[in-house]
């Protein structure tokens, strides 16, 4: 293995494949009927261990995938590549903030 890039690529693919299933499941659990979206149901879902695990992984995968994707877009430009280190650092920080904010919300139930 050679540095971060091959790992980023493989995880971009793996998280993508996993999300096809996770997001389909998420869509169906929230929109098959909208009883599911009532405050009581949402809170009881988020309180259950199984859903906590499910959402934790969805959150982990989606934040990595989305921000690594954004990183790829920015590094495709002259300006982005010239400041590669800064781009990597800033994107990582934003991704971590998004992840920990989501995890914080999850932890409240």
């Amino acid at each position: 293995m050679r540095g971060f890039e091959p790992i980023a690529w493989i995880f971009q693919a793996l998280t993508g494949i996993a999300m096809v299933f996770l997001i389909t499941a998420h869509f169906l659990t929230t929109h098959a009927n909208h009883e599911m979206l009532s405050y009581e149901n949402a809170v009881s879902r988020l309180g259950s261990f199984e859903y906590k695990v499910f959402y934790f992984f969805l959150l982990l995968f989606v934040t990595f995938h989305a921000f690594n994707g954004l990183r790829a877009i920015i590094l495709d430009t002259d300006g982005g590549m010239r400041r590669k280190k800064v781009v990597n650092a800033v994107i990582s920080v934003i991704a971590l903030v998004a992840f920990f904010y989501g995890a914080f919300l999850l932890s409240r139930f």
């Binding site: 050679r2 540095g3 890039e5 091959p6 980023a8 690529w9 790829a72 590094l75 495709d76 590549m81």
Partner: peptide, 10 residues
């Protein structure tokens, strides 16, 4: 495998 190499292909 440098960042200006294969990783820029989409």
């Amino acid at each position: 495998s440098d960042s200006v190499g294969v990783w820029r292909c989409h």
